[in-house]
Computed example of a mutant assay.
Amino acid sequence: MGSSDRPLPRTLVDRACARWGRPAVVDGCRRLLLGESPDRAGLVDLVRMLGAPLADHELARDPESYWFRTWAARGLLWSWHDDALPELRTALTDDHWRVREMAAKVAARHRLDDLLEPLDALRVDPNARVRAAAARAVDRIVAADP
């Protein structure tokens, strides 16, 4: 636990997987990454789990919040399946920098060499955090190649 006794993101994802099963969590994250509304898609409980403790605030404030896509990408950071590759590729071109940054972190963690081209393009992103995450992802993926 962190200094504020809030669960770490990995713990939240582990709890979601224990509650609904890993395939359902991955599927929910994929759908959220594509911009499905948590209310209309029946994913409010998943958003609450992944985005604790801020989820209820965001759900009330903005039903289309970029945070839902960010938390979905973070969910895939800790519970990856290759079926999510198309949605992660889409997330690398998201309008919001936090989503692009988290998608690059997922690609780095799981060494997703299928995403080298869009990651390389992000190394000139307008946002410095996205550029840094993309550069780390490319370096990690290339270093892992035999």
Rank of each mutant, 00 (worst) to 15 (best):
P23D: 05
D82L: 05
S79E: 06
P7M: 08
R100E: 04
E64V: 15
A134T: 03
S3Q: 13
I141V: 15
R131F: 06
A134R: 02
A91W: 01
D39E: 12
R131A: 06
L34K: 10
G28I: 03
G75S: 09
A52K: 05
W20F: 11
R10Q: 03
W67D: 12
F68H: 05
D95A: 15
A144F: 14
L32Q: 12
R74C: 09
R74K: 13
P86Y: 02
P146Q: 09
W71Q: 01
E36D: 13
H96R: 12
V47D: 11
D83T: 13
G51I: 13
D94L: 10
A108E: 12
R129I: 12
H96F: 10
L8I: 07
S3D: 05
H57K: 15
L50G: 02
V106K: 00
M102S: 00
P7R: 03
A24M: 03
D120L: 06
L115Y: 09
E87M: 01
D45H: 13
D5E: 13
P86E: 07
S3R: 11
P126A: 15
P146S: 10
P126K: 14
R31A: 05
R31V: 11
V106N: 02
P118I: 00
D114P: 09
D27S: 12
R15Q: 10
R136M: 08
L112I: 02
E87R: 00
R123P: 13
R19W: 11
A18V: 07
A103F: 00
D145G: 14
T90W: 08
A24N: 09
L112K: 01
R61I: 10
A16C: 07
L116I: 08
A55L: 14
R109K: 11
R69H: 06
R30N: 07
G42T: 09
S4M: 13
V25W: 07
A135M: 14
F68K: 00
V106W: 02
D120P: 06
T90A: 13
R48F: 09
R69K: 13
P118H: 09
S65N: 10
V106A: 03
A143V: 13
P23V: 06
I141F: 09
N127V: 11
R61W: 15
L12Y: 03
D14H: 04
V25S: 04
L8F: 07
A132G: 10
L92V: 01
A73S: 13
R98W: 08
E58S: 11
M49N: 06
L76W: 04
D95K: 11
G42V: 12
D62M: 10
L88W: 00
L12T: 01
V130D: 11
G2E: 07
R15S: 15
W67I: 05
S79N: 06
G75E: 04
W67P: 03
S3E: 14
G75T: 01
E58K: 09
L8H: 06
A91T: 01
D5P: 08
S3L: 10
R61F: 14
V99E: 08
A104T: 04
E117I: 00
A41D: 06
W97V: 09
A18E: 09
A134F: 08
A132F: 05
H81N: 12
R22F: 03
E87V: 02
T70P: 00
A121C: 08
S3Y: 12
G42P: 12
R131D: 08
R15M: 06
D83R: 08
R61A: 15
G2M: 10
R109Y: 02
H96G: 04
R48L: 15
R111E: 10
A73C: 07
A134K: 05
D83G: 11
A91R: 00
